[in-house]
Design a binder for these strands. Sequence first.
RNA 1: GGGUAGGUGCCCGAGUGGUUAAAGGGAACGGACUGUAAAUCCGUCGCCGUAGGCUACGAUGGUUCGAAUCCAUCCCUGCCCA
Length: 376
Amino acid sequence: MKPAITYELIKQCPHTGARAGRIHTPHGSFDTPIFMPVGTQATVKTVSPEELKAMGAGIILSNNYHLFLRPGSKLIKEAGGLHKFMNWDRAILTDSGGFQVFSLGDLRKISEEGVTFRSHIDGSKKFLSPEIATKSQMDLGADIIMAFDECVPYPADFKYTRESMELTLRWAQRCKDTMTSENQGLFGIVQGGMYKDLRIECANRLVDMDFPGYAVGGLSVGEPKELMYEMLDITLEHLPKNKARYLMGVGTPDCLVEGVMRGIDMFDCVYPTRVARNGTAMTWNGRLVIKNAQYERDFNPIDEHCDCYACRNYSRAYIRHLVRVNEIFGLRLLSIHNLHFLINFMKEMRQSILEDRFVDFYQKFTANFSFNAKSV
RNA sequence: GGGUAGGUGCCCGAGUGGUUAAAGGGAACGGACUGUAAAUCCGUCGCCGUAGGCUACGAUGGUUCGAAUCCAUCCCUGCCCA
């Protein structure tokens, strides 16, 4: 039987690891490399599905932990699945809740069996295991579901990291054993912290288990970027070329380019939407903190070359005004712009790979981009 | 005209003799944000500066070792009664 999720390699960059491809899912195919907007609670904050489609989003992310707690995976199953529930008919990927094991800090306790959480909503005790997380994700019905892993903090010593990786591997097997859905694909997650040999071992052993796609997790958790790139280099060497590769939680333009150059196909990140809600716009030159006083009388669009809804119709001064007076529309316009920017950014990168000029793209990008835009 | 309550930093507002450059909000300004406990969080916010100094609580004058805080006069504002 044909697997639910397949990766099609279309073009390999002859000079770097960058590659253009296409991923096929039960809810359509999308081109890679791709950026996936994050919609944790079954909605990409402030943005409608129609708007996401208009900007070209082919797949979005949602979160098992949050939906499991509220409204409950069973309720969503009852509603006809996550796609129907949230009115999104393209592909969806759900994260297992592994990241919450990491981010909820002292609200959780890890054991071999699984993770006991205190709900961040009401403090009640909740339990998530590889089996429960997988079944819950089967109820949600996302096209791609993720293994339940432990995301190791940075820094972490070797012993802890190795034990955690072993646990993640055992959990991955349990997820796989639980996964019976034929119209979903379960991705394994490579952990191993900042230790090359652990990364290699984790990748090899996951590949032996044979997943339809592999994620690189546990990166972008506060380590220097160079270290992250090193880990990516070594990890990707050990992942198969005929499967999708997903770098979890990465979304600043510089990291995206570096990831693509090393052969990553999929990225997700809350960065563009969170930063939007906090008054910042993303551009090819870097960030534009639109709420800053310097834009008070700037009647130009965020980016005059951008053809997103916000840039076609509104000025920096107007958006700054909306953000300052706390109007939701300002947060929406920035979210729409930032997502559009990243989706388009990936599209252009892909085009450069197809046309054998990725290296040129990389050099031009690096020359123009600084984290804080210096342009007017 | 009589009575009464009050005038505090950009705004609101606490403070009723020293530990007060003055709580707390708000505004303003800046920063952070990478598998979303986030329309959140953090910092600055009288002036000059390194210590330290200067100017400040309606105005002026007093009491006191010491006053935003007590007294006198004046100015202004809210409310009530004529």
